[in-house]
Amino acid sequence: MQRRVVFNNRILPYFLLLPQLIITTIFFFWPASQAIYQSVLRQDPFGLRTTFVYLDNFRDVLSDPLYIESFQVTIVFSISVTLFVMTLALLFAVMADRQIRGAQTYKTLLLWPYALAPAIAAVLWVFIFHPSIGIIGKSLNAGGLHWDYKLDGGQALLLIVVASSWKQIAHNFLFFLAGLQSVPIAVVEAAMIDGASAWKLFRTILFPLISPTTFYLLTINLVFAFFDTFGVIHALTGGGPGRSTTTLMYKVYMDGYVNLNLGISAAQSVILMLIVSALVWIQFRYVEGKVHYS
């Protein structure tokens, strides 16, 4: 039973949409179209010589084993970050949702990391985990564990996964907490009267009821891991050692900004745009069908 609201004014809706449309056009459609245009050109940085090369850039990118390597790094990275963030954020939210003393303080403290810019967060992590000057990094080495993320690819990847997740947990925590608090108290109480254990309560009542939140966060986290982790990678590892932390996003930056290879970089942006669009589409198409909206 849906009530439809019909506007009689034909112009007003467009007028109300206009600010958002302008912003989207300026900050998305226009640059995106530029990227698509640039991706079929070979051009020197100054724009003095331009050749139209059809899809050569895409062919070069997709046949480049290093691009495939970055692809793998990105997949491992994104899945790790998403899993790590969501598990911990949910755990924290469930814990903080209970009636405990100082709940407000815990909530506030858990939100702090979100207020930090990624680059600043990364610098903090440097001070903690740098093998020779970081407080934990130094103790790890003193304790006999060989910790050197500048030379150990696995450790470097682990570090940026943890650092990126740490940043994102606060955001997820907030949404999970809001989700949990919107679960009708009557349902919870009824279950408790029936003698449901805490785990059973969570598994059969809370978790299904917050599934829209979970679904939303899944999408947001994947997009975050793909696009928004540049600052952390740039400040912590710079894509190294070797190429062990060069994600697709970081490669776009390196090829475009440092290597000044605009065509190749633009082609990668276009591919990245397609990948993320596809991801979001798949999620809405298939995962959403299984989500329970109350």
């Binding site: 100082g102 303080t105 610098v123 440097v126 001070f127 400040a235």
Partner: peptide, 29 residues
């Protein structure tokens, strides 16, 4: 409430210790 305050203090102390001994310019940044 006391415990909360104590907890915040400890956290601040940890943060401070974590940041203090670092040299001025971030070396890897």
């Amino acid at each position: 409430m006391k415990r909360t305050i104590l907890f915040v203090l400890i956290l601040l102390a940890v943060l401070f210790v974590a940041c203090a001994p670092a040299p001025t310019p971030a070396p890897t940044a």
